[in-house]
């Protein structure tokens, strides 16, 4: 069993990796920060999980490999998050740890987690689709990467 490393950093300070969610009328925004674009993507995935459950309460019992391809980094982010949503929805899995590598528009990711346990995880809103609303992948002036979008729940 892989331990789920503590990656949670709500309202992270500049220079740190971390994730947070942000308000949207009916749905919810997810945002990841990191020293690299790939790290920001991995953090955004944790923010996505947090829409439903506390990622820190997820045990990393099994892994899934996820690959996406898109020239536009925003499209790549939305594809990555939607691929995770498919694993949650169809695979009945929830994840607590992600690793991402990005090169030339190709994303190779890994997600670790466990089967959803309604009694133990108490899942709230189900993330049903990552959207292009408020979608942004950018390097901020201080050097930190941010990856964000609104998720339909």
């Amino acid at each position: 069993m892989l331990p789920c490393s503590p990656q949670h950093a709500s309202q992270p300070a500049v220079g740190q990796s971390g994730w947070e969610t942000f308000p949207h009328d009916a749905d919810i925004g997810v945002r990841g920060y990191g020293a690299t674009c790939a790290e920001a993507f991995a953090m955004a995935a944790l923010a996505l999980v947090s829409v439903a459950v506390d990622p820190e309460g997820v045990r990393c019992l099994e892994g899934r490999k996820i690959a996406c391809q898109a020239d536009d980094p925003v499209v790549l982010l939305v594809d990555w998050l939607n691929a995770i949503i498919v694993e949650i929805s169809a695979g009945r899995l929830i994840f607590g740890r992600f690793r991402v590598a990005i090169q030339d528009g190709r994303l190779d990711g890994e997600a670790w987690g466990e089967p959803i346990d309604i009694v133990r995880h108490h899942p709230a809103a189900e993330p049903k689709g990552a959207t292009f609303t408020e979608a942004r992948v950018a390097r901020e002036p201080e050097g930190r990467w941010v990856a964000q979008c609104v998720v339909d729940v």
Binding site: V75, V78, N82, V86, S89, K128, G129, T131, F132
Partner: peptide, 16 residues
């Protein structure tokens, strides 16, 4: 899930 997946996939395809 089916409706969401269709919406997601076609939104992407229509955008491109």
């Amino acid at each position: 899930g089916l409706g969401h997946q269709i919406g997601t996939e076609f939104m992407r395809e229509m955008l491109l």
